[in-house]
């Protein structure tokens, strides 16, 4: 075994999905890798390389994780966060020392604190690539979907989407809470079920920093929905399709064109394995 990918089983379910994607991509690179829960790291890890997906949520598993993680030879955090937020800083304060950080996303960031930073483009895994290439989206019953925890800005955006894009969009904005099975939130499988019936997956950051939520883009494309981000502050800063300053701009585009533009852009980028391999090679024994 070359590496262990650790996911936070007490944390947000979306990080388990990220961990599974990392396992798939690492396997595609020929790396012998196993997936383990933060609270049950098991045997045979001494000296191994650990890819800790969101260490601060892994730490919710308590002492079994914190003490177990110390046995690894190398500890690399795998993150998908804006470096300007507290959620990023939380990763550095778990009591587990980190040798490196791998930021999985679309736009490389500049981390001013913490261990050495590496960027991995959030390209598709093999199965995702096959799904995206196979899609031929047609009309769907849900014109758009908008899912995230509630903020004042997101509530205002929901109103504009209803008024300016189409009234019948799927709006799920519960108060902020961890995404857990049956916890009044939509788990990854439920989000996928919604996106598979949606023409456009709309989102807006829950903070004001320049950041692109690449996982929403990937989730949309894999489910055959067009990704569309609304970002009134930073729309012009992204060289990524379908980032709009206003809902009116989004409403002027048809869903099929949005999907085709996003897919064409994404399929010219490296896969997740192609991004992960050089990053891991620099840290693996």
């Amino acid at each position: 075994m070359d590496a262990v990918v650790v996911f936070p089983e007490q944390g947000n379910l979306f990080y388990r999905a990220l961990a599974q994607r990392v396992v798939t991509a690492a396997s595609e690179c020929g790396i012998d890798v196993e997936l383990r829960a933060a609270g049950d790291l098991g045997d045979g890890i001494a000296g191994c390389t650990a890819l800790l997906v969101n260490p601060s949520e892994c730490a919710l598993s308590g002492e079994p994780f914190v003490s177990g993680a110390r046995a690894f030879g190398t500890r690399i955090a795998v993150l998908a966060e804006s470096v300007d937020t507290r959620w990023y800083r939380n990763q550095l304060a778990t009591g587990v020392s980190l040798d490196a950080i791998l930021d999985v996303g679309f736009v490389e960031q500049t981390a001013v604190e913490g261990p050495p930073y590496g960027f991995v483009f959030n390209g598709p895994t093999g199965p995702e690539l096959a799904a995206i290439e196979a899609h031929a989206p047609g009309a769907r019953p849900i014109p758009w979907s908008f899912v995230g925890h509630r903020t004042d800005e997101r509530v205002s955006l929901a109103a504009r989407l209803v008024a300016e894009l189409a009234p019948g969009g799927f709006v799920f904005l519960p108060r902020s809470k961890r995404v857990r099975a049956g916890g009044g939130t939509l788990d990854p499988a439920a989000v996928t079920a919604v996106l598979e019936q949606s023409e456009i997956y709309v989102w807006e950051s829950h903070h004001s920093h320049l950041y692109y939520e690449s996982f929403r883009f990937v989730d949309a494309l894999v489910a055959g929905a067009a990704p569309g981000k609304i970002d009134a502050r930073h729309a012009g800063a992204f060289e990524i399709p379908n980032v709009f300053e206003t809902v009116a701009e989004l409403a002027h585009r048809d869903a099929r064109t949005l999907y085709d533009d996003a897919r064409a852009w994404y399929l010219t980028r490296p896969t997740l394995a192609q991004g992960l391999e050089p990053a891991l090679a620099s840290v693996l024994p």
């Binding site: 019953p141 902020s176 961890r178 857990r180 099975a181 439920a190 919604v194 019936q197």
Partner: peptide, 28 residues
């Protein structure tokens, strides 16, 4: 008792969450 007492449903997807499962958690 289950924390979730209601369900989440949309005609295009069916039940996205059935009643009777889960626990509350306020953290983000």
């Amino acid at each position: 008792l289950p924390f979730e007492l209601g369900g989440i449903y949309h005609p295009a997807t069916g039940f996205l969450q059935q009643a009777g499962a889960g626990s509350d958690d306020d953290s983000d």
